[in-house]
Design a protein around this nucleic acid. Structure first.
Length: 867
RNA sequence: GCCGAAGUGGUGAAAUUGGUAGACACGCUAGACUUAGGAUCUAGUACCGCAAGGUGUGGAGGUUCAAGUCCUCUCUUCGGUACCA
């Protein structure tokens, strides 16, 4: 008889059993209710990390639970296999991205299998295979035909020395991460998806996703960034031109004392040409072009601008106001031009002060008298209009509409809505991605690759350039081709590849029919399985991945390919896995094994024996070395203990602090259950588990334990089903286990043995989604046939949840003064009498008549006596 | 700056609709068993106090018979995001 749980033999045994019996293989079965659970698929970066372990354990528990509940569960796994790290690794290690990627997939797949996750591996997909991306290319062509994909010029980070495009994360302090040369902004023709067409629809449906955490839908709403305002036209003085601006404050138009254009605004050059400012403006624009124009970089730069030499006419005051160009105005938002109202906007205010421009107060706060020459900051609040002609005295809020209507009549404005959301740029000047299936012909322009020529395969034999650029444009046999339309021999293939977010926007549909060769997916399979019922992943994807996926479903929906719009009915965003950092004064950050506890309790560095400083608990990362390798956990504790701890330490949505002691604790619990089963097995094996009502039990101890077991089933079921709070589910089972430990096994009568067996079997059933190998093994040892996974989820008896006696809590003036037991069916007057006649209570109440006595019999039985 | 989340013992955390604050676990203390224990079992463990008792859920107010939970103000930490006009 084994005295301990031996994961090294038990876990492989059951993994092999599951595989042999194909227990995780699923197919469409209309007779059963379906449940599609998906965890965000991993990027194959090398090895799985603890965040994956947590994510996939959470999902696996729910999947195994739902199966026992009778659902037909789809639980697939695959690989988000295209992306930049493969290229970087290939350059650094002199391998090929494909070899590196497939190698990593092999390693990680083996690790996931060792964790015992219940995937239907027959549905595995990797997005870098032509069998996958060919359908993405097909969809791209459909979108192109419908105008949902289009080309426009747009800026990228460019390193002149490396002759390559850099992602934002490859830019470090405005310099290239490889060669440290300053990064420039370069204009390139790139492909875009028209996600802005769906801005309103995506926004509205944020409020119709009750299964999503509110913080995620709020983030999406903010990202879409709808603002209601007006578009106003300012005539350029001396030209037959208008400058259009977007403003959310049309009520302040009388205070617009100058105008600012984005440096990239096409009118900047036009307006300055031939003026005394021409050269200075050109110099300014050259300077700004070296500044990072991506969202991230902007804060670093001081607000500055320059007069273009031109003036325009304020449509409200009809005054001439100067036109500036300024680095803080974005071409990508609104119209790329703003009317500057320094009295009402802090940026405009700062700018006006810096360049000595007029500040004219147009909104006067109640009870104050602001003066443009003396005010120290802009006033953005509500007030009454001043210096605003016929609108003087009006409150500024109602003036928004009135002023716009007035300008509209004059032909100088209209109400509009502006979104922060921009179209989705999908062109990547990279090798390791899905090729964009179009051909550029000198005569025909942009031509679709005919569908019969798909997939456009990524040339596998390409060698990556040392500097990181894509080799595709230099591969003649790939880049040069004939035009499918006119047959011209000197056509050029598009050598850009697609953003990897494109692959992850629809992979969950591919899982429904992974081998389907007539399209992206088998419509019947998708009809059965989709949408995903429960999606689980990191909150870091709250905006982009989830928004792009929602967009893609709208595209497919409008193409008539699917009949739903929202891909993920319920979403769980799990917290990060954190651990304390350790720092040696000489050796910097230390890995956990590089710091040991000395005999005197001090923690010292293994390299130099100096005291180690324990730092804050932060997200695990290689750079901070506060990491735990899942492989080592598997080696030392096995999959089940690792799974158990990652669930027990914190509820899923919260951050989890990793602690070696905590893992030891989980290990201890698992062995505690093991011993419990082993010790009692021989004695209770021959009885039948008790299943009647608690009232049939004679002894109090058996009754108490039986009720506890029923309560545990109820609690665990609710915790898993309603809130995914596995930590409290495990706690509940621990309580039951502790209660069983308190039973004297030697003295147990038949009745008690029956209750013990009932409790033990249910403990295994309740824990089986969490520590499946362990439960399988004990379930078998208890003499059961077949897999525990095929058992039904345990049911509790409604009539066996309440004990005979209840605890009455008595408060005096809200303070706890006494507790005592009473029969459960006592009515209020009995409880009240008992409370008032309690000795301890009498002491507090004295002779006085209580003012009020409140008796509560809901959750707790409680009496509060007010004196 | 804005948006979001969270502040509870030495630690991770519990606590339907307001109803015994600290379940469960880690750690620690003591004891038992043992050749040994970093195994196991048992007991104890919010704080102050010898005790009676008092105090306690970041802080300050408030509502209530009763507040970790509801309201107002405020502080701190973490996450996201930003010249968005």
């Amino acid at each position: 008889m084994e005295e301990r749980y031996h994961p090294e033999s038990v876990e492989p045994k059951w993994q092999a059993y599951w595989k042999e019996n194909q227990l995780f293989k699923v197919s469409e079965d209309p007779s059963k209710e379906k449940y599609y659970l998906l965890e965000m698929f991993p990027y194959p970066s090398g090895k799985i990390h603890i965040g994956h372990v947590r994510n996939y354990t959470i999902g696996d528990v729910v999947v195994r639970y739902k199966r026992m509940k009778g659902f037909n569960v789809l639980h697939p796994m695959g690989w988000d296999a295209f992306g930049m790290p493969a290229e970087n690794a290939a350059i650094d290690n002199n391998t090929h991205p494909a070899a590196w990627t497939y190698n990593n997939i092999r390693t990680m797949r083996a690790q996931l299998k060792k964790m015992g996750f219940s995937y239907d591996w027959d549905r595995e997909i990797a997005t870098c295979t032509p069998e996958y991306y060919r359908w993405e290319q097909m969809l791209f062509l459909k979108m192109f035909e419908k105008g949902m994909a289009y080309r426009k010029e747009s800026y990228v980070n460019w390193c002149e020395k490396c002759q390559t495009v850099l992602a934002n994360e490859q830019v470090e302090n405005d310099k290239c991460w490889r060669c440290s040369q300053p990064v420039q902004q370069k204009k390139l023709w790139q492909w875009f998806f028209r996600i802005t067409d769906y801005a309103e629809d995506l926004l509205i449906h944020c409020d119709q996703l009750p299964g999503w955490p509110e913080k995620v839908t709020i983030m999406q709403k903010n990202w879409i960034g709808k603002s209601i305002g007006s578009e106003l036209k300012f005539k350029v003085d001396g030209h037959d031109l208008d400058i259009e601006v977007f403003t959310t404050r049309p009520d302040t138009v009388f205070g617009a004392t100058f105008m600012c254009l984005a440096p990239e605004h096409p009118l900047v050059e036009t307006l300055s040409r031939g003026t005394r400012m021409e050269e200075e403006v050109a110099a300014f624009i050259r300077k700004i072009s070296r500044q990072e124009r991506s969202a991230e970089g902007l804060e670093k730069y001081e607000k500055e601008g320059i007069f273009t030499g031109a003036f325009c006419i304020n449509p409200a005051t009809k005054e001439k106001i100067p036109v500036y160009t300024a680095n803080f105005v974005l071409m990508g938002y609104g119209t790329g031009a703003i009317m500057s109202v320094p009295a009402g906007d802090q940026r405009d205010f700062d700018f006006a002060r810096k360049y000595g421009l007029e500040i004219r107060v147009v909104v006067q706060p109640p009870g104050e008298d602001l003066d443009g020459t003396t005010m120290t900051e802009a006033f953005t609040g509500e007030g009454r209009l001043v210096n605003s002609g016929e609108f003087n005295g009006m409150d500024n809020k109602s003036a928004m509409d009135t002023v716009t209507t007035w300008l509209e009549k004059e032909g100088r404005g209209k109400k509009t809505i502006s979104y922060r959301l921009r179209d989705w740029g999908i062109s990547r000047q990279r090798y390791w991605g899905a090729p964009i299936p179009v051909i550029h012909c000198p005569d025909c322009g942009v031509v679709s690759v005919p569908e019969k020529d798909l997939p456009i395969r990524l040339p596998e034999e390409a060698n990556l350039l040392e500097k990181g650029g894509s080799p595709l444009p230099f591969l003649d046999y790939f880049a040069h081709t004939t035009c499918p339309k006119c047959g011209r021999k000197d056509a050029k293939r598009d050598t850009d590849t697609m953003d990897t977010f494109v692959e992850s926007s629809w992979y969950y549909l591919r899982y429904c029919s992974p081998g389907y060769d007539k399209g992206m997916f088998d419509p019947e399979a998708v009809k059965y399985w989709a949408p995903v019922d429960q999606y689980i992943g990191g909150v870091e994807h709250a905006v982009l991945h989830l928004l792009y996926s929602r967009y893609f479903m709208r595209v497919l929906n409008s193409l008539g390919m699917i009949d739903f719009k929202e891909p993920f009915t319920r979403l769980l965003t799990q917290g990060m896995v954190c651990k304390e950092t350790m720092m040696c004064p000489d050796h910097g950050y230390l890995f956990p094994e590089e710091a040991v506890k000395g005999s005197d309790g001090r923690i010292i560095c293994t390299k130099c024996s100096k005291d180690v400083e324990i730092g804050r608990v932060i997200k695990m990362s290689k750079s901070k070395k506060n990491v735990v390798d899942p492989n080592e956990l598997l080696e030392k504790y096995g999959a089940d203990v690792t799974r158990l701890f990652s669930l027990f330490a914190a509820p899923p949505e919260r951050d989890l602090e990793w602690s070696e002691d905590g893992v030891e604790g989980s290990n201890r619990f698992v062995n505690r259950v093991w011993r419990l089963a082993m010790d009692s097995m021989e004695k209770i094996k021959d009885v039948e588990p008790f299943s009647g009502p608690a009232s049939d039990l004679v002894s109090d101890s058996a009754k108490t334990l039986y009720i506890k077991a029923n309560q545990t089933i109820k609690k665990v079921t609710q915790d898993i089903d309603k809130s995914f709070h596995f930590n409290t589910a495990v706690s509940a089972v621990m309580e039951l286990v502790n209660d069983i430990y308190a039973v004297n096994l030697e003295a147990a009568d038949t009745e008690m043995k029956k209750v013990l067996l009932f409790s033990l079997e249910n403990i295994l059933l309740l824990l089986s989604p969490i520590i499946p190998h362990f439960c399988e093994e004990l379930f078998e040892k208890l003499g059961n046939q077949g897999s525990i996974l095929l058992q039904s989820w345990p049911k509790y008896r409604e009539d066996s949840l309440e004990p005979d006696e209840i605890t009455v809590v008595v408060q005096v003036n809200g303070k706890l003064r006494s507790t005592f037991s009473l029969k459960a069916d006592s009515d209020e007057s009995v409880i009240k009498e008992a409370a008032l006649s309690d000795e301890k209570i009498k002491k507090y109440v004295g002779d006085k008549k209580p003012k009020k006595v409140i008796v509560i019999t809901k959750k707790q039985t409680l009496v509060n006596i007010v004196v």
